[in-house]
C-alpha cells in the first residue's frame, strides 16, 4: 500500500484531490455528453447527402469544432477565462475548472460520436425513411441506437482524455490529483506523493476503460452472443 509511506496529512490531501478530480471529471463528462451528442448528431445529419443536408451550417460547425480542438488545453483554459467567469461566477477554483474542461472535451466527444453515427448503414436510414419516419425519429430510433456501442467506446476515450486534462486544472486553482502531483511531488521533492498520484490516476483510467468496454459490450448486439462464447 502506497499510503503507508505517506503521512496522514498527505493522505488526507490525496483524498481531497481525488474528490476534486472526481467532481471536475464527472460534471464535465455529464455536461460534455449532453452537449456533445447533439453536436455530433448535427455534424452527421447536416452533412451533404445525409437526412438534413445544410452544407454551409455543417461547414461552420465543423470549423468551430476544429478551432477548439486545435487549441492546446492549457491555452484554452486561460483564453476562455472571461467566459468561465460568466458561467461559474469565478475564474479560479474547482468549479471554475469544470468550464474549460467541458469546453475542451465537448468537441472531442462530438467528433467521436459523429464518427460512430456516420458508420450507421445508409440502408437502415432508408428503411426508416421508407416506413415514414421523420428526421428526428430516424435520429432517435435508428442512428443513435445503432451507433450506441461505438458512441460508448468514444465516450470512454473522451473520458480518459478528460482525466488527463483535469491534471492541468491546477493552473486555474482547480486542485485535483494532477495539481497535487505537481505541487507536492515535483515542487516539494516528495517522490512518494508523485508515485501515489500516478498510481491512483492509472487505477482510475483502468477502471474507466474496463467499465467503458463492458458498457459498450452490453449495448452491442451486432455480433451473436452464442457465436462469440463458442469461438
Amino acid at each position: 500500500m502506497p499510503f503507508d509511506l505517506l503521512s496522514p496529512a498527505v493522505t488526507a490531501l490525496l483524498f481531497e484531490s481525488l474528490k476534486q478530480t472526481a467532481y471536475m471529471v464527472s460534471i464535465a463528462a455529464l455536461v460534455s455528453t449532453a452537449l456533445g451528442l447533439p453536436l455530433g448528431v448535427l455534424l452527421v445529419v447536416t452533412s451533404p447527402g445525409h437526412i438534413l443536408p445544410l452544407p454551409i451550417f455543417n461547414r461552420i460547425l465543423g470549423t468551430a469544432v476544429n478551432l477548439v480542438r486545435s487549441t492546446p488545453f492549457i491555452i484554452l483554459m486561460v483564453a476562455i477565462i472571461p467566459f468561465t467567469r460568466v458561467i461559474a461566477g469565478s475564474s479560479v477554483g474547482t468549479s471554475a475548472a469544470v468550464v474549460p474542461l467541458t469546453v475542451a472535451i465537448t468537441p472531442l466527444f462530438a467528433r467521436l460520436a459523429e464518427t460512430a453515427m456516420r458508420e450507421v448503414d445508409r440502408g437502415l436510414i432508408e428503411a426508416a425513411e421508407a416506413i415514414g419516419a421523420s428526421p428526428l425519429q430516424i435520429i432517435v430510433r435508428v442512428i443513435i441506437p445503432e451507433a450506441l456501442p461505438s458512441i460508448v467506446a468514444g465516450q470512454t476515450v473522451a473520458l480518459v482524455s478528460l482525466i488527463g486534462y483535469s491534471a492541468m486544472a491546477g493552473t486555474v486553482g482547480g486542485g485535483g490529483l494532477g495539481d497535487l502531483g505537481v505541487r507536492f511531488g515535483y515542487q516539494r521533492f516528495m517522490p512518494e506523493v508523485m508515485l501515489a498520484v500516478v498510481i491512483v490516476l492509472v487505477a482510475i483510467v483502468q477502471s474507466v476503460q474496463l467499465l467503458g468496454d463492458a458498457a459498450a459490450r452490453a449495448v452491442n448486439h451486432r455480433i451473436a452472443r452464442g457465436k462469440r462464447s463458442t469461438s
Binding site: 425513411e129 430510433r141 451486432r222
Partner: peptide, 29 residues
C-alpha cells in the same frame, strides 16, 4: 409512405433491436 412497404437486398434490419423491436418500429413511428 406508410401505405408503401419496402424490403431490401441487404434486409436493413436494426442490429440494436430484437425481431419484435424491429417490427415495432413502424408502429412507433
Amino acid at each position: 409512405r406508410r401505405d408503401i412497404g419496402m424490403i431490401f437486398q441487404h434486409f436493413n434490419v436494426l442490429s440494436s433491436k430484437t425481431v419484435a423491436g424491429n417490427v415495432a418500429l413502424p408502429f412507433k413511428v
